[in-house]
């Protein structure tokens, strides 16, 4: 594992911790899209089907468990926890995420490495992860103001994707590794979705001002 991959995994982990911290400390999930969180839970459940059949390393197994567990816990909190669910911005979180699921499923049955249940599920999870942030970005755009922890959550998620691209470039030159073209294309699309957010994040950081997205 190279430094970029590790940095990517760590920023991903930090993003999850920031989100859990926000929900736990403020007992509020305002500014967080439940639809995006549901999509991530689906992403991890369909990607890590190989959890018990395909052992790679203790690190991989633990990280998979953390991502499945934390995404389910966040969805549970936002739906069931009496205080947290009251702060959920239901009226603003109206993205039709079922269409994303349907489109990614159709794409996965058409474009995959092998037409087997596991490979179709893997491709599905890759496509769905690429677009899963959309309901969250739309929610932030609509509400305009972004609180500190929510901004940091999205920033770390975007950083995770950027590090993964550096990881692939590194692996391409050091290992002649370029078999994961489905993941690479989807990963580039996914990272590009953050470009706009990053732009405003850095402006607010440079001016030491609160993060605001233009309507």
């Amino acid at each position: 594992m190279n430094i970029f991959r590790f940095a990517g995994d760590m920023t991903h982990l930090i993003s999850v911790l920031v989100l859990l911290l926000k929900i736990y400390a403020t007992k509020s999930c305002s500014g967080i899209s439940l639809k995006t969180q549901e999509l991530y839970a689906l992403v991890f459940l369909s990607r890590y089907l190989d959890l018990f059949t395909n052992y790679i390393s203790l690190y991989n197994t633990l990280m998979k468990l953390v991502f499945i567990g934390s995404s389910l816990a966040i969805v549970w909190c936002m739906r069931m926890h009496h205080a947290v669910k009251r702060s959920y911005d239901k009226e603003v979180d109206t993205f039709r995420h079922y269409y994303l699921v349907l489109a990614c499923f159709v794409l996965a049955t058409l474009v995959n490495e092998q037409f087997t249940l596991r490979e179709v599920c893997w491709a599905f999870s890759i496509y769905l992860e690429a677009v899963a942030i959309l309901p969250q970005l739309v929610l932030l755009q609509r509400s305009g103001n972004v609180d500190n922890l929510t901004g940091q959550y999205v920033f770390f998620l975007g950083a995770y994707r950027a590090f993964y691209i550096l990881n692939w470039i590194y692996r391409y030159f050091t290992e002649q590794y370029f078999t994961r073209w489905i993941a690479c294309i989807a990963g580039i699309v996914q990272t590009a979705l953050y470009a706009d957010f990053f732009y405003y994040y850095f402006i607010s950081w440079k001016n030491n001002a609160k993060l605001q997205l233009p309507a």
Binding site: M63, F67, Q114, R180
Partner: peptide
């Protein structure tokens, strides 16, 4: 068909 490669990334 080629066997699908090991997926060592998360």
């Amino acid at each position: 068909t080629e066997p699908s490669a090991v997926k060592d990334e998360l």
